[in-house]
Amino acid sequence: MKKYLPSIMFFVLLLIIWEWVVKYFEIKEYILPSPSAVGSSLINKKVLLWDHGLQTIYEAFLGFLLAIGAGLVLSVAMGLSPGVKRTIYPLMVVSQTIPIVAIAPLFIIWFGYVMMPKVVTVVLICFFPITLSLVEGLSTVDEDMVRLLTAMGASPWQVFRKVKFPGAMPSFFAGLKISATYSVMGAIIGEWLGASKGLGIYMTRSMKSFLTDQLFAAIAVVSILSLLFFAVVEITGRLVMPWYYQK
């Protein structure tokens, strides 16, 4: 915690300046609420925020898990077979040039105003960093280690399981951390386009009613949720790769 102290102090300083600017220039609350106004709205609306937040957590988490599953399957297939990699990898990169915001409304047409379109949005956003990092991790394996195991009589599958896959874990977890923060954002984007519940729709409603303090309160919750997802991945990483953190 100690290493974050300078950042925290600087952040608090920024909040104080912000508070002072809003008060001094008498900025209207619907233009820019002060941090204290945001704070009080966080406390006043905590039941509602929690209710909407739970929905967002659920969508983000489910989408994140599905993206991990899909990423694992695809990258393992690409790691085991160069042919699959040559076929899929370029298409995967090209798929990232499609603006998800533009096609997300389609999901609503396909699946309706249910949870599904949000989860699909999360999967599409999270899938790429996860798969890319794992594929990269699998391909940067130390060839000398592979040769050693091969000379010892290991099968290609044993080489994969004992050298390539564990060796790809640090890179995989780097991708997971990126995706973890994206997952909450993905759920919000999904909800913007139409939902009955969730922080995304809460934000849209607050904005339309010029309740800017509530919008900021929701943003604060989204940030905290993203950090939470990040922390879960970080802790999992420490449990899975104790060797990596002992260096």
Partner: peptide
């Protein structure tokens, strides 16, 4: 075999 590089699996 054994090389100059120890090739131990770090994990």
């Amino acid at each position: 075999y054994m090389l100059q590089k120890d090739l131990l699996l770090p994990w």
